[in-house]
Design a binder for these strands. Structure first.
Lengths: 225, 225
DNA sequence: GTAAACACGATAGTAATACTATTATATATG
DNA sequence: CATATATAATAGTATTACTATCGTGTTTAC
């Protein structure tokens, strides 16, 4: 078992770095499987411990609680997306093209062929779609934000902001547009799967092409030329 | 104690109609106060029972669990918004003006002077901003959706969809735009208050004017003319 | 090569949560 | 006045979200 892509995450997310031991890696790999299966509310450390033939107490040595484990997983995802965008921007100079590429990646990064990891990226994507808003919709947001626990997400949004500023320096709402696109990439898929009257798009068999089209429509029309 | 605005909500949201008894009304009024104060995760029926000098068992006679109580509260809010929009559309024929009005109301309905209720509308608005996505981000979405528990929200979105269709019959993404605007009305405020690098707007002292402006920018620019 | 440090598993225990059930009493209804 | 109903009071259960302690096997340091 190995996580070949090693991303550097905020140390305050964990008590012991899960990327540094085989138990730690098992915790991450299996928590992705279990959270996707049970949903975050029904996911417990006890159930996870059982899956990996370990104990609750051992998992608690890595993560203070399941909320921080979820935040770790989300942060891993955002950090990975950021990295995939950078790779795919290599040698691209045109900002419009860069925007299209970045949109395609947040719509569905799991097709990326360069990533080598034991984390199931499709399951992780499903978790992000279904659970991501829960990491900041808590009474602890401000405290966790002060510790820098949301920096990765904000950095990813900034990436879009910089592009919008390059494409149209006078556009008044680059941050709103960036955060809205990031949200859409999750919520519209969720609606397509569960509340389809709230969207016009379809997502069947991991085909996110319609999502990508809508996101481009939003981005390019709002930013103007 | 009385809830003068009586909205008709899906019967499957509750075991006993909280609008039909004084205990029921207390449950709703105080749960709004408590959920806003504690956040949904730390809110419990035991704490609520204590606040209203009642018991857990009594509250369980009204609501199966706290999730359905939250959904009830959210549904009340959306139903109320829908009602406020209808009132404010009275005698307005211009679709652009109707859209502006509807946007202003979802940005901040609590200014509405016609509503007479013991529910604290500003606190309720805060709950919607912080907790609304939790009502459908569960493993029960599909079951609850089949029971019609999200009809009020979908109906509200449809209202926008119909407007977009009237304004531009060839616009390809009316549902995406509707659900995105509804989401923005919560998320952008949350960002302004807690993760302000994710937004360009400011919301200070319940002044939602900048939110309204951004939402109009999105709606009118995307829908075209 | 051995001692110390460490990681992990095993076990136990606690307070709180999310309920369910039963009974007694007060109140409303017919 | 009898009855039905709503609620309060109480008790109890399984699960959750932890915390603490201890023993053992493995790694690391010198």
């Amino acid at each position: 078992m190995s996580i070949d892509v090693k991303l550097i995450l905020n140390q305050k997310l964990f008590l012991r770095d899960p990327q540094e031991s085989s138990l730690g890696k098992k915790i991450i790999i299996q928590s992705v499987v279990l959270i996707e299966k049970l949903g975050f509310e029904l996911f417990t450390f006890k159930k996870l411990a059982h899956e990996i033939n370990s104990t609750e107490a051992s998992i608690y040595r890595y993560f203070e609680n399941k909320h921080l484990l979820l935040l770790y997983i989300m942060t891993w995802y955002w950090e990975w997306i950021d990295y995939v965008i950078d790779i795919n921007w290599n040698n691209i100079d045109d900002d419009k093209q860069k925007l299209s590429i970045a949109i395609a990646i947040i719509a569905d990064a799991s097709e990326d062929e360069f990533t080598q990891t034991d984390i199931d990226l499709k399951l992780l994507h499903h978790i992000v779609i279904a659970e991501s808003t829960k990491v900041y919709h808590t009474k602890l947001v401000d405290k966790e934000n002060k510790k820098g626990l949301f920096l990765t997400y904000k950095k990813l949004a900034e990436k879009f902001v910089h592009l919008f500023e390059a494409l149209n320096p006078s556009y008044p709402y680059p941050r709103v547009l960036a955060s809205t696109l990031l949200e859409m990439s999750n919520s519209q898929v969720f609606y397509a799967q569960h509340l389809n009257r709230l969207t016009d798009i379809e997502v069947k068999r991991e085909d996110y092409s319609q999502l990508k089209t809508v996101m481009e429509h939003f981005a390019f029309n709002l930013i103007g030329k």
